[in-house]
Simulated scan of single mutants.
Amino acid sequence: MDIGLIGSGAIGQYLLKKINEDSHPELHIGHILVRNTAKYRHLEGDYGVVLHTDVEAFLASDIDMVVEAANVATVQALLPHVIRKKDTMLISVGALADEQLLVETARLAEAHATRLHLPSGAVGGLDLIQNAKTFGNLERVELTTRKPASSLTGESITEEKTVFHGKAFEAIEKFPKNMNVSIILSLAGLGINETDVRLIADPAIEKNIHEIRLAGDFGEAVLTIKNNPLPENPKTSALAALSILGTLERVPGNIRYGN
């Protein structure tokens, strides 16, 4: 499968190393959409890619799927246009907290027979959540995220501090770089207005820790994920990067697990 990449930050370069440099047997990144070709010119020699600044030329290339590895603003600007022409995978799912964008994207994907793929990112259990909500059996979804205090507050604190408690739509508004996980859980489950979120700054930890609690007619479940950082960028979880690569590997497969 030929992949077109939007963005070339930590996750983008992780994908280039794992797919192109390591010669993945089924995947190849051939084209990258960037804002500044001079800044990223080295990627052409390092990974054998073609750089684009024009989205039309990028989409007209021989790519099968677009993978966004940029930011929420980029998704908001480009997603409606991209989904018209190519299957698309989003990393910055926080953009879909905008209900209008979500509805428009779904409409365009149906009209143009394309698909939007949303990897689970830094969490897991999305199949359980989706199964539990079948026929209205999911009643409650709660997310508690703990992060190293230095990543959330400039204060010098010695005890954990709750910096946010509310619904998912508020969490992504106040912490757009920290709460993508709340949106993917909301989309899989009860929605951004019904998903409870707590964000805690904890001076005693070095990893991001996500605890998901759900309950309904099916029973109850608790999932805890402790994320190691991505070596290329300590602010990004390794699991978030792995979820993208794993999803890409499963797309062409004939056997699906948990879907």
Rank of each mutant, 00 (worst) to 15 (best):
A38S: 14
A38I: 07
A38P: 00
K39G: 00
K39N: 05
K39H: 07
K39M: 06
K39C: 00
K39I: 00
Y40M: 02
Y40P: 00
Y40S: 10
Y40C: 01
Y40D: 08
R41H: 12
R41T: 03
R41E: 14
R41F: 07
H42S: 12
H42F: 12
L43Q: 04
L43I: 05
L43F: 07
L43E: 03
L43D: 03
E44R: 05
E44D: 07
E44L: 01
E44I: 06
E44F: 02
G45W: 10
G45M: 06
G45P: 05
D46Q: 14
D46S: 13
D46G: 00
D46L: 11
D46P: 01
Y47L: 01
Y47I: 02
Y47H: 07
Y47M: 01
G48V: 02
G48L: 04
V49F: 02
V49A: 04
V50N: 12
V50G: 03
V50P: 03
L51S: 09
L51M: 12
L51Q: 12
H52C: 10
H52D: 11
H52F: 14
H52E: 08
H52N: 11
T53Y: 04
T53R: 09
T53M: 06
D54W: 04
D54K: 11
D54I: 07
D54T: 07
V55M: 10
V55W: 02
E56Q: 14
A57F: 02
A57H: 13
A57E: 15
A57C: 06
A57G: 11
F58E: 08
F58W: 08
F58G: 09
F58Y: 13
L59W: 14
L59D: 13
L59Y: 14
L59Q: 13
L59E: 11
L59R: 12
A60V: 03
A60N: 15
A60S: 15
A60K: 14
A60W: 08
A60L: 10
S61I: 09
S61K: 09
D62N: 15
D62Y: 05
D62L: 07
D62A: 14
I63N: 02
I63R: 06
I63F: 04
I63S: 03
I63D: 02
D64Q: 13
D64E: 15
D64L: 00
D64S: 14
D64K: 08
D64A: 11
D64V: 01
M65S: 01
M65E: 05
M65G: 01
V66R: 04
V67G: 10
V67D: 07
E68T: 03
E68P: 00
E68Y: 11
E68V: 02
E68L: 05
E68N: 12
E68M: 10
A69G: 09
A69N: 09
A70W: 00
A70Q: 04
A70F: 00
A70T: 08
A70L: 01
N71H: 11
N71G: 12
N71R: 08
N71S: 13
N71I: 00
N71E: 09
